[in-house]
Simulated assay, not measured.
Amino acid sequence: MPDWPAVDPTPAFLAFSRSAPALLSAEAGAWGEPFRAAAEAALRDRARTPDEARRFFEHFFRPARFADDAPGFLTGYYEPELPASRMRSPAFPVPLYRAPPDLVRLPPSEPLPEGLDDAQGFARLDASGRLVPYPDRAAIEDGWLSAQGLELVWLADPVDAFFVHVQGSARLRLEDGSTLRVGYAAKNGHRFTAIGRVLVAEGELPLEEADMAGIRRWLAAHPERAPALMRRNRSFIFFREIEGADPNAGPIGGQGVSLTPMASLAVDAGFTAYGTPILVDAPELIVESTPFRRLVIAQDTGSAIIGAERGDLFTGSGETAGTLAGMIRHSARWTVLLPLSPGEAP
């Protein structure tokens, strides 16, 4: 890695130290064992400078690349900050829902039941005990979950709610001045559809304008068509309240730890284990006047993140982070740092 000396791995060390307790937990099982020595060291000795963080990763990991020489693809996501209410009102008419009781998580290691060939991890258990597809976004918005008491919180705007679904978490400012953090709990099992791609395919937006800002502008300019477009994404996310979260840290990711801005990456967990450090090199992505080349840690996942070299960079919370996240759609080269095997371990 010729550019490694120029990389500041301090934010990645902070992110890895947040992953360390999860890597050492009983729930981590066999996939956490290769990281044990590094995780114990990260909790024991905090790296305070770039040189200390660099030595840590050099000591416990070795670089590797996937055999396929094709570049990967990097996008960005963030934690929206929005006003919200615990109670429905004319000012806050749009709910975020808890997971319903008839939603079933499908075991990833087992064949999909008949009729669920395209199920994305979830299905509905009907009254007869059969597993069937869960209703899609349109059906849920039309009232499928009404009168079940599943509303977690209410938002002011359906477009904001849609993008909270896309991001998977939010930091909400309640009417009494308190803050509520919500995060991903489950989904309805329908495949995610990127509405920006729909707009490009149908000639509504040029590709270069199909970032989050461009999509929002199109939705605002076409309020009569916006609901139908958003329903083209049949995937629907259910949320949970995140209690006891560090107000200075990011949301809780798929690994169950707080995310670190610009140092946490959502990955396809079927290819990349949580806790894995990855050097992402995206020279056409300019951040703070510099081509993006940073060490990040795999700590989250997402329904649109599929494949070995596909990642979603967590950029932080709030509007500025959202602007940056919406701009990231770049080819990138992945260098994975693999934990040293027992024979190699220091």
Rank of each mutant, 00 (worst) to 15 (best):
A99V: 13
N233R: 04
D45E: 09
R65P: 13
G149D: 08
E141Y: 02
A70D: 04
E52A: 15
T323K: 15
D142M: 01
L229C: 06
G311Y: 10
K187H: 15
Q120R: 12
E79K: 04
I278A: 03
R48T: 15
R62Q: 11
A226H: 00
I306N: 00
G76W: 03
A39I: 07
F66C: 10
R98K: 05
L295C: 00
E288Q: 12
Q148C: 11
P277S: 04
R173W: 03
W334E: 05
E208G: 11
G322H: 09
R18E: 11
L125W: 05
L295N: 09
P158Y: 08
R232K: 14
L174A: 05
F163D: 08
A39Q: 01
G149K: 06
A282Q: 12
V94D: 05
T323L: 10
P5K: 12
P93S: 02
E344V: 07
A228P: 02
Y97N: 05
E110P: 04
S128W: 01
L295M: 14
A138L: 11
R48F: 12
A186K: 04
L112H: 06
E141W: 14
D51I: 11
L229V: 08
R124H: 10
S258T: 12
L106T: 05
P261T: 00
T75F: 08
R88C: 09
G149W: 03
G256M: 02
A37R: 03
A220V: 03
L180Y: 12
P158K: 08
E33W: 02
H190I: 02
S169H: 01
T301S: 03
V287D: 01
A249R: 04
T260D: 08
A28L: 09
V94W: 06
L172R: 07
G244H: 10
A119Y: 11
E79M: 01
S331F: 13
R88E: 13
G326K: 11
F239P: 06
G76P: 09
A30T: 00
P206F: 02
A147F: 15
I278P: 08
D117E: 15
A47Q: 07
I140V: 02
L96D: 07
